[in-house]
Simulated assay, not measured.
Amino acid sequence: MITATQPTTQNTAQAPAATPPKTSGLATDFQTFLLMLTTQAKNQDPLEPLDSSQYASQLAQFSMVEQQTRTNNLLSGLSSSMGSVNLEELTRWVGMDVRTASAFQFDGAPKTLFAQAEPAATNAVMVIRDNAGTVIDRIAVPKSEAEFVWAGVDGDGNPLPKGSYSATLESYDGDKLLSQKLASAYNKVKEAQSSDDTILLTLENGQVVSAAEVTAVRTGA
Rank of each mutant, 00 (worst) to 15 (best):
W93R: 05
L74Q: 14
T8K: 12
F148A: 00
T168R: 03
D45Q: 05
T39I: 11
Q10W: 10
S179E: 08
M36H: 12
A124C: 07
P46Y: 04
G220K: 01
K42F: 15
D156H: 10
L59A: 14
S195V: 15
E147D: 14
V214G: 06
S24A: 15
Q116P: 01
D130I: 02
K181Q: 15
V135M: 10
V141R: 00
R129S: 07
A103M: 06
A151E: 08
T122V: 03
D196S: 13
A17I: 08
K22Y: 00
T91F: 11
F62N: 08
Q54N: 13
L37I: 07
L37V: 09
F148L: 01
F148T: 04
V98T: 00
N73R: 07
A183G: 03
N73A: 12
Q14P: 00
F33T: 00
F62I: 01
D197W: 05
D51L: 05
G174T: 03
T19P: 02
P110M: 00
N43S: 10
V94C: 07
Y165P: 01
D29C: 08
S57R: 11
A132Q: 11
Q116M: 08
K188F: 03
S195R: 14
D175Q: 15
T39F: 14
G157V: 07
A60L: 13
T100D: 04
V214T: 07
K22N: 09
G83H: 11
E147T: 14
S76A: 15
Q67S: 14
